[in-house]
C-alpha cells in the first residue's frame, strides 16, 4: 500500500494556497468552486509551481521538501498528469503520443519495444484501432482515453486527473465515468481527480477533499459530506442531481 502526503503553501496571484492532506491508494476527489486552487494543487504535486513552503512525499520518495532543499525535477517525479482538455500533442499520431514518454529520459526504450508497449496499452483501453490517427480529429471520449493511455503506459507513481470528464456530453460521460472508475481500480496506485460532479465521486469510490479559497474546508467519504456539508458550496455539490 502506497501512502503519500502533500503539504503545500504558495502564492498564486490572488490565491493564497495552504493545504495539507494525505492518503493511500484510495482515489481522492478534489472538489471546490472555480478558482479555489484545485489545478494549482495538482501542478504543485507535479512540480510545476514555485512553492514557498512544501513537503510532498509518495511512498518512501520525497518529491519536494523546501526545508531540506529537496526538489525533484518534474520529469523525474513519475507523475501521470492529465490536464483539462487532455493536452495531447497535436503534431503527433495517437501511437506517437502514447510512445512519447517511453522515448524520453535517461534510458529511452528501443523503437520496437516502445510501439509494442504503447499498442498494448491502447488495446487495454480499447483504442488500438485509433493508433495511426492524428489526435486532432478524435472525439472527446477518444482523447480522454489516449491521454490516460499516455500516462498509464509509464506506470506512474501518482496519477493526477484534472476534470477528465468535463469536456464530454452527458451520455458519454456516464460510459466514461464507469470506464475511468474501472481503470483507477486496475491502476492500484494513488490518484487525485478534480471534478465538479458528485456522480464522479460516487463512481470512483473516492474520498473527498474540498477546497475553497486555497484552504481545505472539509474532507472525508461522500456519506460524511452528505450528512453534514461544511459549506454552502458542498451542500449544493452533494445535493446536486
Amino acid at each position: 500500500m502506497t501512502s503519500w502526503q502533500v503539504i503545500v503553501r504558495a502564492r498564486r496571484g490572488e490565491l493564497d494556497l495552504d493545504v495539507t492532506f494525505e492518503g493511500d491508494e484510495q482515489p481522492i476527489a478534489l472538489v471546490g468552486p472555480n478558482g479555489s486552487g484545485k489545478t494549482s494543487v495538482l501542478r504543485a504535486i507535479a512540480g510545476v509551481l514555485d512553492l514557498r513552503d512544501a513537503r510532498i512525499t509518495v511512498g518512501d520518495t520525497v518529491l519536494e521538501d523546501t526545508s531540506a532543499g529537496v526538489r525533484v525535477p518534474i520529469e523525474e517525479r513519475r507523475i501521470g498528469y492529465v490536464p483539462q482538455g487532455f493536452g495531447l500533442f497535436p503534431h503527433l499520431t495517437v501511437l506517437e503520443n502514447v510512445e512519447f514518454g517511453l522515448s524520453t529520459g535517461k534510458n529511452p526504450l528501443q523503437s520496437e519495444e516502445r510501439s509494442r508497449r504503447a499498442l498494448q496499452m491502447l488495446s487495454e483501453l480499447n483504442c488500438a484501432s485509433l493508433s495511426e490517427r492524428s489526435v486532432k480529429h478524435l472525439s472527446g471520449g477518444e482523447k480522454q482515453r489516449i491521454a490516460l493511455a499516455r500516462s498509464l503506459v509509464l506506470e506512474p507513481a501518482f496519477l493526477l486527473l484534472d476534470e477528465p470528464l468535463a469536456a464530454l456530453d452527458a451520455t458519454l460521460r456516464r460510459t466514461l465515468r464507469q470506464f475511468l472508475a474501472e481503470r483507477l481500480r486496475l491502476f492500484q496506485g494513488p490518484s487525485i481527480t478534480v471534478t465538479h460532479d458528485v456522480r464522479d465521486v460516487a463512481a470512483l469510490g473516492a474520498q473527498i477533499v474540498a477546497l475553497e479559497n486555497g484552504r481545505i474546508v472539509q474532507q472525508g467519504p461522500l456519506s460524511l459530506i452528505q450528512q453534514s456539508p461544511a459549506t454552502e458550496f458542498l451542500a449544493e455539490f452533494v445535493g446536486a442531481d
Binding site: 507535479a46 518534474i74 523525474e76 498528469y81 482538455g85 493536452g87
Partner: peptide
C-alpha cells in the same frame, strides 16, 4: 498551450527536450 509542455515534462522530457 502551457499544459502540453507540463505534460511533456511529466512524461520524462527535460525542458530542452
Amino acid at each position: 498551450r502551457p499544459d502540453m509542455l507540463i505534460v511533456a515534462r511529466t512524461l520524462g522530457a527535460s525542458p530542452p527536450v
